[in-house]
């Protein structure tokens, strides 16, 4: 059973690992990857809490709209739980 998620659209300054081109896009969780220390804290030398990380699969049509080379090609990215909204 696939699980659909949307990438949050927030854009704080600083070190984050959610690519801008995926923000607001809807994909399906391809697999959970476990929990990893939050890079948004590690980057500043802070003690980091662990956050769940997921591989999320998007269609090129969802990511690029009419600019997509092929609508049914796919794009997978790793995204932390705090960047995802479950649908």
């Amino acid at each position: 059973m696939s699980e659909r998620v949307r990438v949050r659209t927030m854009a704080p300054p600083g070190h984050v690992r959610a690519p801008y081109y995926l923000r607001g896009k809807v994909g399906e969780i391809e697999r959970p990857l476990g929990a990893f220390k939050n890079p948004e804290q590690l980057a500043y030398g802070l003690d980091a809490e662990k956050k769940a990380l997921f591989r999320v699969r998007f269609t090129m049509a969802e990511v690029w709209g009419e600019r997509a080379e092929r609508p049914d090609d796919t794009l997978d990215a790793e995204l932390y739980e705090h960047w995802l909204e479950r649908l």
Partner: peptide
């Protein structure tokens, strides 16, 4: 895009940073 940590010389920005290159 914003030059570094904060956008320089811009009164408004979408918050996208220079290194975030996907799709450019």
């Amino acid at each position: 895009v914003s030059a570094a940590f904060y956008p320089v010389g811009m009164s408004d920005t979408d918050g996208r940073r220079w290194h975030d290159m996907g799709g450019r």
